[in-house]
Structure formats: structure tokens, C-alpha cells
Amino acid sequence: MNKTLISLIIPVILLILWAILTTYTGIIPSYLIPSPSAVWTAFVNLLTNGSLITDTLSTLTRVILGFLIAALIAIPLGVIIGWSKLAQNLSNFIIGVLRPIPPIAWIPFAILWFGVGLGSAIFIIFLGSFFPILINTADGVRRTDKVYIESAYTMGASQLQILKKVYLPAALPNIITGLKVGIGIGLMCTVAAEMIGSDNGLGYLILTSTSMLDSASAIVGMLTIGIIGLGFEYFFRRSERKINW
């Protein structure tokens, strides 16, 4: 059987169970979990009034901006940390302490530094994406096989050339893994990011619908985030496969 078909088996079973437990038997009352049809109606409403598209686009913009800024800083920094023992020792402690802090905890500072709105949202997503990219890049550079470095030296390469032509390509698979994890975590931060001063976005949609007890619309927002995440995952997995060595 086709792989795509197999991967759809469980979702379809869950959908059927969901329908049975809500619409057809009412075992689970609608204020706990809305029925599939209610979610469908909410989806059609949000689609036709255009707000789902706007929300998706604004969330995508924030996530991609936060992610790109994170990648732009984390990749060079990761290369330096992986390359230089001194840089690694200097940064070990600070990274160890900063990394476990949930991005949501930064919200007060995000507001102080970037004000209410887009800047803060991007900052929160940046924080989520930054560390996975940094750590995977550093790890990839550090694990570069010594024989590649030495053969480059014996062929006359300079330190800088080795950095560019050996460490960087050798670490590329790890860097892509870091980017994949990074954008995933960035996406997970959207609700937190859109708590501050946003008036659109999928996180905002989830927050406002929940506060108005419109759980069907909240589920539409949740599933949309999930599907975007799946899209990113697919994109990065394809890039990983392009590296065929």
C-alpha cells in the first residue's frame, strides 16, 4: 500500500471516532469538544470572510522573519563555537543557562525592548528558533572528521578556506537539521508571540476564539498551525535528501 495512504489511516479512524463520540452519540458534550461538523462550519466561515488567510499569512510572516534572523545569527555563531575551543568554553555556561528558559518567559522584556506588536512577536519566535540552530551547527562543525581538515591543510588550504570549504559543507546536514527543528519550535511559539499586541495571526485566532468560547474556530487555528509545520518539515526533509552523500 502507498505510504501516503497508510499515513492517513489513523487520522481517518480518529475522525470517525470523533464524529461518533460527539455528533452521533453525544457521549462527549459539545462544550468539551466541538463536533467535526462544527469545526468544518467554523473553517468555512473563517475561509469565506478571509480572516483565515490573513491570519495564516501574518503568522507565516512572523515565523519566517523570526526564523531567518535566528538562522542569520545562529549559523555563524555556531560555526565559531564549533570551530574554536575557546569560543566553546566561553559560551558553554551562558548557552546552558539561556537555552532552557521558555520563550514565553521573555514576554515582559520583549514588550520593554520591542514594544507591543510585530517586533515582540518576531523576538519570541527568534528565541524559539535560535538555540536549536546554534547547537546543531556547532555540533556539526565540531564533529567534522579530522582527516578532511588535515588533507585540506596538506593541499595548501588556509584556515579561512578550511572553514569555508571543509567545516561548513561537512556541517551542512547538521545545520539543516538545526533549521528544521528551529522553525518547528518557532512555529510552536506563535501563540505566545501573538499574545502581545497582535490583532491577527493563528495564535491570535486561537486566543480570541477560546476567550469567546468558540472552540471550533480554535481547533481550525490549531490544525492550520499543524499543517504549516508539516509543510516546513516536508521542505527540509527534501533539502536533507538533496544532500546525497
Partner: peptide
């Protein structure tokens, strides 16, 4: 002074 290593030292990405 060119060096040929015992183990495979070719760059796998090239």
C-alpha cells in the same frame, strides 16, 4: 608534499 591518507579522506560533498 602531497599526502595520501590510509582511510578515505575524499570530501564526500564534492
Amino acid at each position: 608534499r602531497g599526502f595520501v591518507f590510509q582511510q578515505y579522506s575524499l570530501f564526500p560533498w564534492r
